[in-house]
């Protein structure tokens, strides 16, 4: 009996109870996690995703091959081959090669473009099975990244 009294008297687990109360309190709060493949978060409009080429309302390339993006790119992943065609005053990109493998998504190319011809879209699932799939040519630059199915 005396031992029990002593135990109660020296019982001083306030710090631990305080901590346990915090964790207990959190049981009744809303979950903040997202069940990823089923639920998806929408990135903000300024999100820096994959580089894409844009077309104007007539379906023409907005790019005039001023090479500003080529020059500013810190990792040199953009290459443009300019060309001329009939019915267009400015030059247009015959080739627009982009190596996403090495892109650091800094957005300096979009910032340097005076014609609004490129943008970083809001894709964030950019993983591929092969390194070759990261090497984008002009045709692929307009399209969203193809969805990759899981395979063994």
């Amino acid at each position: 009996m005396k031992g029990l009294v002593n135990f109660v008297k020296t019982f001083n687990y306030r710090d631990l109870i305080k901590g346990a109360a915090v964790t207990f309190k959190h049981q009744f709060k809303k979950t903040v996690t997202v069940q990823y493949p089923k639920q998806r978060l929408e990135p903000f409009p300024r999100f820096r995703g994959r580089l894409t080429l844009l077309k104007d309302e007539n379906g023409e390339d907005k790019c005039v091959c001023c090479m500003a993006c080529v020059r500013i790119c810190p990792t040199q992943v953009i290459e443009i081959k300019p060309g001329k065609k009939e019915g267009r005053k400015t030059r247009y990109p015959v080739e627009y090669n982009f190596n996403m493998d090495r892109c650091i998504f800094c957005g300096l190319c979009v910032e340097s473009c005076n014609f609004g011809a490129i943008e970083l879209n809001n894709e964030y699932e950019l993983a591929q099975y092969s390194r070759k799939d990261f090497y984008l040519t002009k045709e692929k630059m307009y399209l969203p990244t193809p969805k990759v199915e899981y395979r063994k």
Binding site: E79, E95, N97, K132, L136
Partner: peptide, 13 residues
Amino acid sequence: REEYTAKLVRKLR
């Protein structure tokens, strides 16, 4: 270093 830049895309294509 340059091998991994955009020139590689052209080369592979």
